[in-house]
Every structure is written in structure tokens, then in C-alpha cells.
Design a protein around this nucleic acid. Sequence first.
DNA 1: CAGGCAACTGTTTGGATATACAGTATTCGG
DNA 2: CCGAATACTGTATATCCAAACAGTTGCCTG
Lengths: 207, 207
Amino acid sequence: MEPLTKRQAEILALIRKFLAEAGRPPTRAEICEAFGFSSPNAAEEHLRTLARKGAIEMIPGLSRGIRVLKTPRGMDAAEPGLPVVGRVAAGSPILAEENVEERYQVDARLFSPGADYLLRVRGHSMRDAGILNGDLLAVHRTSEATSGQIVVARLDSDVTVKRFQRRGHTVRLLPENPDFEPIEVDLRREPFAIEGIGVGVIRTRPR
Amino acid sequence: MEPLTKRQAEILALIRKFLAEAGRPPTRAEICEAFGFSSPNAAEEHLRTLARKGAIEMIPGLSRGIRVLKTPRGMDAAEPGLPVVGRVAAGSPILAEENVEERYQVDARLFSPGADYLLRVRGHSMRDAGILNGDLLAVHRTSEATSGQIVVARLDSDVTVKRFQRRGHTVRLLPENPDFEPIEVDLRREPFAIEGIGVGVIRTRPR
DNA sequence: CAGGCAACTGTTTGGATATACAGTATTCGG
DNA sequence: CCGAATACTGTATATCCAAACAGTTGCCTG
């Protein structure tokens, strides 16, 4: 998005505020009133500029036909909420369309660092970490992890959730359930990638 | 709010949908188009009825001057999201202002039945049910529970989370951790009330 | 069976709104 | 110093829109 001048940013902020408080986009006249303009054309030209720069969309002929488009960062404001990723097809990117089951609107402030998606956990290997079969793991996308963190890892073509431990060329993926065995990966010989780190859990039904 | 007829509920649903998808309230004409009406007066009369019944507000003279008012259950537009209840002061209602730490916007569709608030769980007595110290328990407000459900119960002036079991005049509150002892309550002699049932869990940091 | 209500059709009107056109002042890069 | 862009004033107008008025149909209730 092209950069906005200070005044243009003020206009955009007003549109957002109006939308949030009144539940409808402002008219040219209402923008004028808010800023003290005496001509509706002042508002009209600001709107045209904002539309040209990609900040808003104007629907011709409609009253209050203003739409605020995506926010500067976080390209995916068009699809609000966090995507729920189920079984990940072998070889496909984790957020590929085919893997997304649904989207849930969840407050970003809940997790830090912020969650990028929710992964539906299969199996009981993380039971003792309080992550049960069917739970949604809130995942922050990153390829870096430190020992002790819970990671979403990709092995060959399998995606798994385990506690991460690294020693030199060896990565150990530790389950949190004595019934399961740790996985050892030799980074020099086997494919391995971290898809993200666990930053939270959402369980949608009680146990 | 006065009950709506089927048709009126459809109109209200359309307004909500329009608002969510287009980002602005519909005009009379747009309502007509959506339902196949050939007279704007059909929409006008529906809107008047909805306004009279308290479902919407109409601002006279303004184009698209429709506001959807609070929905029947606990989520009013003024205070969006679910309140987080921390330590509950003895004797005070669980949702009293002083007990609410914060509010988080969380998609209502996540839980069924719907969650009314989030209770911050203290202690480890429900560890084996995957509810850890510091977790947020999503609670559906009700005073009824069936055996086996996880309940938020009030004993004397203490609020606790346990698995519910009832036998005649006796209620047993079962922890999910062998280090803790079950609590027995004789309903004829001791104060006891169910505040709600657990419908989900949110953990905001990994373990 | 009369009367009320829900759910429409059809028409009209004044005010609300978007939008074009004609100017003015200021700033800024070339 | 000139042209372009920003940031406005002021005026005008076709169209959008809310809202009123006059009917119709079917259903339910007393």
C-alpha cells in the first residue's frame, strides 16, 4: 500500500472510528463535519486519494459505499480470524487452502508471541503437557526454536507436535507421555524443519 | 426482547450478514432485492417492527441508519468478548465487576453450548483432565449439571472446578489428580450451588 | 363474521448523498 | 520559476434513500 500523508491517515482513522462506533461508513458530509470542512469536495478528494492508494474501496453510486481494505501489516485481514489446520497433506505448505478446515475469530492478545494458526492435534503423545487428542494448538510461525519449547515439526512428509531438544547435529523430539518413544533426527542425513512453536491451547469440548 | 416471527428473524439475519460482508447496513431497496420484495415498504415495515421489538435501532433521516442492538444472550455490543474472571471474592456474584480481569474476543462458535465467561483456574487438581494451573476454563452459565460433567461449583464462599457426581442427597466433587481428595457435600446440610459447566479450555502459554 | 395482525404490492416525495466542475493557496522537486 | 500534488472553498445536480400513504391477501382470534 502506498504511504499515506498525515492528513490522509487522519481521514482513514476517522472512517475506522465511525465504522466502529456508528456501525456504518460515514458520508462525505459527515467527514466534513468531523474535520470542520465546509465543502463536501474536500472529503471526496481525500476518499479518492485513499482509494487510489489502496487503503479503501469506493462503490460508485451507493450511499456510504466505503470499504476499508486490508490493514498495512498482516496481509490476510480479508480472511479474519485464525485458520484451523487439520491433517496436513504430505508435501503441502501447512497453510495451504486444502489444509484449512475453518476460521475462528480469536483475540490476538491472548497469546504471545501471536498465534498465526490453530493446529488440530491428533493422538495422545503430549497428554502430560496438557495437550489432548482433538485440542487446537495455537502456533506461532517460525523456523527457530530453543530447547524445551513445544514445536510443530516436519519430518520427511509428516507433521508432528513434540517438545524440542537439540544437541549439535541431533534433534530430539520428546513426547509428554511415557507410552511414547522420543524421536531422534540426524540433521546431516534426514530432512527436518520447524514449522512453528506452540504458544497456547484451545480445547473446544471438556474431557 | 420481544419474540420475533420467523420472517422477522430472517430479516434480522440478513441485516447482520449484510453488515458483516459489505461493512455497511442495507437500504430498504437492498433488503427487497435480497428477499425478492417488489416494494420498499415491505422492508420498511419489517424494520419498524424490529425496531419496536428492540432488535434494531433506526436513526431517522439517515441513509443506512440501522443499528443492530444487543443479542439476547450475554454479548452486548458495548462490552464485546468474554470476561475473564479471576479470584472470586467471597459472597459476590461470579460476574461482578470486581472479579472481571479483562475481556477477550473469542469466537462463540468454538464452544457448544456457548461460553459465557472464562474462569482462570488455580491449582493442579484437574491436571489429568488437561486443565492446568493458570488455564482459562470456558464456562457456560447454568445451575444444572449431569454426573461426569466438569462444573464450576460454589461451596460456602469458595468457588472450585471439579468433576461433578450426584447420588441422592450427596454431591461428590472429584479432582482429576490422585494427589487431591474428593469433596463430599450433603445437600441437606451444606450450602452448594452450580455456577456453570466447563465447555472448553484456553491455555495462553505453552507448558 | 368482524377485526387485528403479518406480510406484502404500488406509488410518491422531500431530503440525503455522491460526484462533477470551477476556483484558491501552499508546498516541493526539477 | 514552473508544473504537479496536496488540501481545501463554493456551487450544482442527478440519483439514492427514507418514509409516508393507499391498497391487498391470508391467517388467527374473540
